[in-house]
């Protein structure tokens, strides 16, 4: 699974969780916080992305994630 595949999943889930967000604003260098996600929205993006990708990642793995790229990288590591 490529980085782009995982990013597209994360982007789709992010737009489900933040329905008022214009899709073009979701770019890989931004953080969920930048996009207006509160702490529960951020957790929901994580659990929904894992579910979509059919993987289970221990939550500690996300501790150092700073932006969508970091999130995508962690997910991609477990998806492959």
């Amino acid at each position: 699974m490529t980085q782009l595949d995982v990013f597209q999943t994360v982007k789709r889930v992010t737009l489900e969780v933040l329905p008022f967000l214009p899709p073009e604003e979701v770019s890989i260098e931004k953080s969920l916080k930048d996009l207006g996600a509160n702490s529960i929205d951020r957790m929901e993006v994580v659990t929904r992305s894992m579910e979509s990708l059919g993987i289970k990642v221990p939550l500690v793995e996300f501790g150092k994630v700073k932006n969508l790229e970091g999130l995508v990288d962690v997910l991609q590591r477990f998806a492959n």
Binding site: I40, M43, E44, T47, R48, M50, E51, K56
Partner: peptide, 12 residues
């Protein structure tokens, strides 16, 4: 089946 996928909104 998958407790990990429980929505974090559940407690709310």
């Amino acid at each position: 089946q998958d407790p990990e996928y429980l929505t974090p909104r559940y407690p709310l």
